[in-house]
Write a protein that binds this DNA or RNA. Structure first.
Length: 859
RNA sequence: GCCCGAGUGGCGGAAUGGUAGACGCAGCGGAUUCAAAAUCCGCCGAUGGCAACAUCGUGGGGGUUCGAGUCCCCCCUCGGGCACCA
């Protein structure tokens, strides 16, 4: 039998599947429905190994479920709006749509070459007017249902390019293109009222038992529910802020009120603004804070700085006043944008207090410390303890003190208990062209007027230019000038478009009825949703998944989904990244400046001893193994791999070795090994087919090969269901080795083993499986063949081998009947030479027998 | 900075609190071959030992347990997220 020729076999079977329409699924399919979905890609132009891994996993799930008798919905599309298309348009002076659709064509071809079981009839791109028309309809329904609001938000503003910047376009506080220091600007923007659902989104996390615990934890923390106290401090008048009589703060630690050392407000706090013109230097300080950008990360990492406003607030229980600072680490979006600082029991407050020489009074004493001598050094104490130095609170535990403070302040009308969430409303307005237009019109008389549904979609104009920064919709000659849908007078369209997270927050629902004239077809979504298995990168653990959960609820409220689809993803799997070694050398410029230059894996050559060299023969340094990225050039192109080894090899390698949730390193040797295994299977099939010609008696008996076969069925079935693809692969290697080593004459058992091997491999290497299946004489395709069943009778053993430990160290092994009673096992263990020797005639203190597992003799 | 993960042979990794290193890759030895490729068989954590075997060994340090890679506490390193990247 000739070597397996993937290059010839793969396109042939892909054509056979397409012709048989085996991946297209209708809504009237009598089989039980199963919806498996991989996160759709951004059409960057080429698929990368991360896609190969993601889609190989989804394909295993889809094909296994098909074999197990389900009607499987397995769609694919394109997350096609976003900044890269605009950047490309600027660089090439072309249109984002041209670039995007060209990329989609290229990537579709690459995905098809992988032999994935997608129903391509359902494909769409989010930039298709048919898709965004329905998204605009959803927006209008959400507007009606009070799920949207408009309010002011801060954006990064590049004063040179006159454009809004994304956080990733702000580098060290400066615009990425202009290099100019970034400013903050306040714009009125649209927001989804996701905070109205904070409690529900939090509570429902408990029901998501098909999700990884770490993602559930991240979402809980992100929503950040806290119980605290909203309280007001009286401001001591000093003439600088005559309208301000009190300062309202939010705290989760009212028990530390006696430890107060200062109060602080955000630079964006109204009080800070009120004081800016009155206090020398404050305006400049606030201006400096604006330079930090809008990301929480930037604020948190910046050095903690503050500015004393000169204003003082009165302590509610003490006859004392404390300074009010404007501080760069106070977030306006959290609580009231103002805090009281207790330096002894909060690290940030302590750092701040030390820096500005403010009071540090410990008020919580650790259980093992002496209240008389307990002091705070450079580390705040955040643990449990009892209250000290705190008047009526002294001696209380923390929780009791919190209650006592809350009661007393409530009685005085100065504060009340509140529940607070860290979660903020979802700002969706973007000042960009390549996104879904927000379908509203601004009328001088009527205000904000929704576009009429019959006028949807509000289409993006094609005649736009990208020769300068800023939003082309804004400067387009005619596009924004329209008649008011309400009164017919001259009005202007909203020129903002939607955040691309909106596009990806409901695409899974659209796949159920991609050509419907409404956002969803209720019969279709009721049949398919929620998604049974969702697969994608861990980087989407919070935003995309949380927004989708909100969107599903909003779609329930507006009648586009049934209530039982409020949680859109029944099960979630987050896969790791694909990494590769890096190769570089330092190139010194004529000015003597060294620069690290990277080389890609297909550019390098290797010496006998493995030393890598660049094309000119210079020695290269092997750098760290990191996520494949263009900048480090450690990218392996799936197209090259498929051309060289075939799609099955790429898929097999991506699924073997590494646990799917962890990062996997692409290595040349690993790919070779995968290719070799596929050849070996092909050879074994050829040998078996020759022997088995004409013999089709059913396998009987309980020989070793049959036992191995049925154990493999059990293990692989379980491993695939639990996303342990690497272990499923190891089991398949085991079965392959057993077939290769089989010298028996039991041909029915051999046929059973080989056919089982092919069926178990089929979800991972579907082309090879079809080719082998045909070689074994089958006329029906594997894709139409049911999954094998394990015979329970072949899974049990009569005897077990048990290790015997003495004081926890293994000293012997015994072979006993599987159902042997404990005392029989104990006797057998004590009778072992090695054990008897260590016992030295004495008797053990204790013998622990764990049936079927282990014996431990304690001396 | 904050939140969430991960660290086991030369490498990827396996191990319901119960024999650490399954399976694969690389390497070494052998068979086959005129030779090579391909293939097949064997060995393969470290140290000591002819061997039987012994001791050590799961990022580092403590602890719980008859027994810890696994549970608890502290630390180190690497990765993901931080609301306008997708």
């Amino acid at each position: 039998m000739a070597r397996y020729d993937a290059g010839a076999a793969e396109p042939r079977w892909q054509a056979a599947w397409t012709e048989g329409r085996v991946f297209e699924v209708g809504d009237d399919d009598p089989r039980p429905p199963y919806y498996v979905l991989e996160m759709f890609p951004y059409p960057s132009g080429r698929i990368h190994m991360g896609h190969v891994r993601n889609y190989a996993m989804g394909d295993v799930v889809a094909r296994t479920k098909m074999a197990q008798g389900f009607a499987v919905l397995h769609p694919m599309g394109w997350d096609a709006f976003g900044m890269p298309a605009e950047n490309a348009a600027m660089e090439r002076n072309s249109h984002p749509g041209t670039w995007t659709y060209d990329n989609i064509d290229a990537m579709r071809g690459q995905l098809k070459a992988m032999g994935l079981s997608f129903d391509w009839d359902r494909e769409f791109a989010t930039c298709d007017p048919d898709y965004y028309a329905q998204q605009q309809a959803l927006f209008l329904d959400f507007l009606d249902a009070d799920l949207l609001t408009r309010k002011s938000a801060t954006v990064n503003w590049d004063p040179v390019d006159m454009t809004v910047l994304a956080n990733e376009q702000v580098i060290d506080g400066c615009g990425w293109r202009s290099g100019a220091p970034v400013e903050k600007r306040e714009l009125t923007q649209w927001f989804f009222r996701i905070t109205d659902y904070a409690e529900e989104l939090l509570a429902a996390i408990d029901t998501l038992d098909g999700w990884p615990e770490k993602v559930r934890t991240m979402q809980r923390n992100w929503i950040g529910k806290s119980h605290g106290l909203q309280m007001r401090f009286a401001i001591e008048p000093n003439g600088t802020a005559p309208d301000w009589t009190e300062l309202e703060v939010y705290t989760t630690r009212p028990d530390t009120l006696y430890g107060m050392g200062f109060a602080a407000v955000s630079p964006e706090h109204p009080l800070a603004k009120a004081l800016a013109g009155k206090v020398d230097g404050l305006a400049a300080f606030i201006e400096e804070c604006r330079r930090l950008g809008t990301s929480e990360e930037a604020l948190e990492k910046a050095e903690k700085r503050g500015f004393d406003t000169g204003l003082r607030v009165k302590h509610p229980f003490l006859d004392e006043t404390f300074p009010v600072y404007v501080a760069n680490f106070i977030l306006m979006d959290y609580g009231t944008g103002a805090i009281f600082g207790c330096a002894a029991h909060d690290q940030r407050d302590l750092d701040f207090a030390r820096k500005y020489g403010l009071k540090v009074v410990p008020v919580v004493c650790p259980p093992d410390a002496d209240p008389a001598t307990f002091e705070i050094g450079t580390e705040a104490y955040v643990g449990p303890g009892s209250i000290i130095n705190s008047g009526f609170l002294d001696g209380m535990e923390i929780e009791a003190a919190k209650d006592a403070v809350a009661r007393r302040l409530a009685a005085d009308g100065m504060g009340e208990k509140t529940t607070n969430y860290r979660l903020r409303d979802w700002g969706l307005s973007r000042q960009r062209y390549w996104g879904c237009p927000i379908p509203v019109v601004h009328c001088p008389d009527c205000g904000i007027v929704p576009e009429r549904k019959e006028n949807l979609p509000v289409r993006l104009p094609d005649d736009v230019t990208f020769d300068r920064p800023g939003n082309p919709l804004e400067r387009h000659a005619t596009w924004k000038h329209v008649a008011c849908p309400a009164c017919g007078k001259d009005a202007t369209r909203e020129t903002d478009t939607m955040d691309t997270f909106v596009d990806s927050s409901w695409y899974f629902a659209r796949f159920c009825s991609p050509r419907a004239e409404t956002p969803t077809d209720r019969a279709a979504v009721d049949r398919w949703l929620p998604v049974d298995q969702y697969i994608g990168g861990i980087e989407h653990a919070i935003l995309h998944l949380l927004y989708s959960r909100f969107f599903a609820r909003a779609m329930v409220k507006t009648g586009h989904l049934s209530a039982d689809a409020a949680e859109p993803f029944r099960a979630l799997f987050t896969q790791g990244m694909v990494t590769h070694e890096t190769y570089s050398r330092i190139v010194t410029s004529t000015e003597g400046v060294g620069r690290e230059v990277y080389f890609s894996p297909d550019e390098i050559t290797r010496d006998e001893d493995g030393t890598p060299r660049d094309p000119t023969g210079e020695t290269l340094i092997v750098g760290p193994t990191i996520k494949m990225s263009k900048s480090k050039r450690n990218v392996v192109d799936p197209e090259d791999i498929i051309a060289r080894y075939g799609a099955d090899t790429a898929r097999w390698f991506m699924l073997s070795d590494s646990p799917p949730e962890r990062d996997v390193e692409w290595t040349e040797a690993g790919a070779e090994g995968a290719a070799r295994h596929l050849q070996r299977v092909w050879r074994l099939v050829g040998e078996a087919a020759a022997k088995l010609d004409g013999d089709d008696a059913p396998a009987t008996g309980a020989g070793a090969l049959r036992k191995t076969t049925h154990r493999a069925i059990r293990a692989v079935t379980d491993d695939i269901a639990a996303f342990r693809f690497n272990k499923a692969v190891a089991q398949i290697y085991g079965l392959t080795n057993a077939i290769g080593g089989d010298r028996g004459q039991d041909l029915p058992a051999l046929r059973e083993a080989v056919e089982t091997l092919i069926l178990l491999m089929a979800p991972m290497t579907p082309h090879l499986a079809e080719e082998a299946w045909a070689a074994l004489g089958h006329s029906r395709m594997v894709i139409e063949t049911p999954w094998p069943d394990a015979d329970p009778a072949l899974l049990v053993d009569d005897t077990v081998t048990m290790p015997v430990q003495v004081n926890g160290k293994k000293r012997a092994e015994i072979e006993v009947a599987a159902d042997a009673p404990k005392d029989v096992v104990e006797q057998a263990a004590l009778a072992e030479d090695a054990v008897a020797k260590l016992l030295d005639g004495g008797s053990p203190r204790k013998v622990i027998v764990v049936p079927g597992r282990i014996v431990n003799v304690v001396l």
